[in-house]
Simulated assay, not measured.
Amino acid sequence: MTFEELELDDALCQAVAEMGFETPTSIQQLVVPHAMDGRDILASAPTGTGKTAAYLLPACQFLLDFPRRQPGATRILILAPTRELAIQVYEQAVAITKHTELVCGVITGGINYGTDKETLSKNLDILVATPGRLFEHIEKETADCRDIECLILDEADRMLDMGFSNIVNQIASEARWRKQNMLFSATLEGAGVKYFSKEILQNPEIIEASPSRKEKNKIHQWYHLADDLAHKQALLVHILKEQVTTAVVFVKTRERLQMLKDFLASQGLQVCWLQGEMPQDKRNAALARFKSGEVPILLATDVAARGIDVPNVSHVINFDMPRKADVYVHRIGRTGRAGAKGTAIALVEAHDFEMVAKASRYMGEPLKARVIDTLRPKNKTPKIGPKKKK
């Protein structure tokens, strides 16, 4: 199938061709026709499968089919949980609307309110926003939601995890005259997403995209058993120096991030890092250095890294295993994007070993052990027995 066969305007087809997209991905083929029919959408798709364009293309087509008759406020509102994701969605919206007269804007926390004011004063067709900052503007009456015709929630599961459900519901009630809603989430399981969809969607088309083999994240995964912290650090340095082109290294806390940053610097490795509550300008600068290839290693906590889309990350390394299996899947989704190959390596001490089994069960595929000859573990692989009843 081609983008033209999805009955998209020539201006949009030209833009996606220039962006390097040759044919629509599974999620785009499934979502675009229903969305263009005006249906509400409840969709799940793994990251890296073209989900952003799946909702931007029909939204832009609607704006072209029904042009604005008079000046006014935002017509399409896209809510994203993190600043980075909001900026990425905005950049993709600008690229897709390149050959049209459509106007896009973005507002996120951590940016000067004066910049927001300037953005909101335009006749915006598409506004991408983080929920917290947009709600501040609604309360101050500096943002007007009455002209919103379509509300799109990206990474709805993440918004719930971050405690945004009340704010999102309040924003939705401010935009009560809208005609269409689309909700995208990594998974449709969880009670939270069901609650959101019941509150916000009306008789939605439910779409669960299994990516084709070509799109599937080709991620090779394995783990190294580590005896203790010093052994784990030695494994990490060896992998970063011998195997890696670019890597995102995940740690569980800000304290661990600081410790690891200093340690890697002492080993002559250049790193940049992202952590929660970091000033936006510093986050942007760190990401820019990593994306440009100036610095090959990015250290991150989960809070900081969700939704980051950096092409061509060769490795994801779990220096600390996460507490939940779905977080493991989100983490490794930073590599092997859009059909490229990627590698995910976990460095696992005995106390973390149970998480290997959980992640393996969650994904339905085995996680196998590997060893580096010069850094073989002294301890044996722990056995995981059945859980003891209390």
Rank of each mutant, 00 (worst) to 15 (best):
R283Q: 03
R146C: 03
K98D: 13
H330K: 04
L56T: 06
E242G: 08
V168F: 03
Y55V: 06
E101C: 05
W177D: 14
T100H: 11
N284Q: 12
A265E: 15
A86P: 02
C60Q: 03
K261A: 15
Q270M: 15
A359R: 07
S26A: 12
I206C: 12
K218G: 02
M159E: 13
I152G: 10
A226Q: 00
I171C: 00
R376W: 00
V313M: 09
H99G: 01
D37K: 12
D37E: 15
A17L: 07
A209Y: 02
R133V: 04
S165W: 10
L201H: 03
T82N: 04
F62K: 11
P322Y: 13
L287V: 05
V16H: 06
E365G: 12
T246E: 05
R331M: 11
L225G: 05
G385Y: 14
Q270C: 12
H224F: 15
A340Q: 14
D302R: 01
V16S: 04
D147E: 11
F3D: 10
K282G: 01
L160T: 03
M162A: 09
K252V: 07
Q28K: 01
P377F: 02
Q280L: 04
L85E: 01
D352C: 11
E205R: 00
F66V: 14
K179F: 03
H99T: 00
H220S: 11
E18H: 10
Q28L: 02
L260K: 08
M259L: 11
V103D: 06
F66R: 15
K383Y: 05
I76D: 05
V356K: 13
L260I: 07
L64P: 10
E294H: 11
K194V: 05
T142A: 07
R361P: 00
T119H: 02
R158D: 12
K389Q: 14
K282W: 00
A300Q: 04
G385C: 05
E365Y: 13
T374C: 13
E84Q: 09
M182G: 03
A344L: 03
H220C: 02
H231M: 13
S266F: 08
M321S: 06
Y90N: 11
K198P: 02
P296L: 04
A45F: 08
D281N: 08
N312C: 03
V128A: 11
E4C: 01
L42S: 04
A265I: 12
S210W: 01
R178G: 05
A11D: 14
R68W: 08
D37V: 00
I207G: 09
K388G: 08
G307M: 10
A129V: 02
N166C: 05
T25R: 15
L298C: 07
E4Y: 02
L6S: 10
D320Y: 09
Y113G: 10
F353R: 12
V248E: 03
T47Y: 06
A234D: 14
G48A: 07
M182V: 07
D281Y: 09
H34F: 15
Y113S: 10
Q275T: 08
R306I: 05
I148E: 00
T119I: 13
N284S: 09
Y195D: 14
K291T: 05
S173P: 00
G50V: 02
Q14S: 12
G192A: 11
G105F: 07
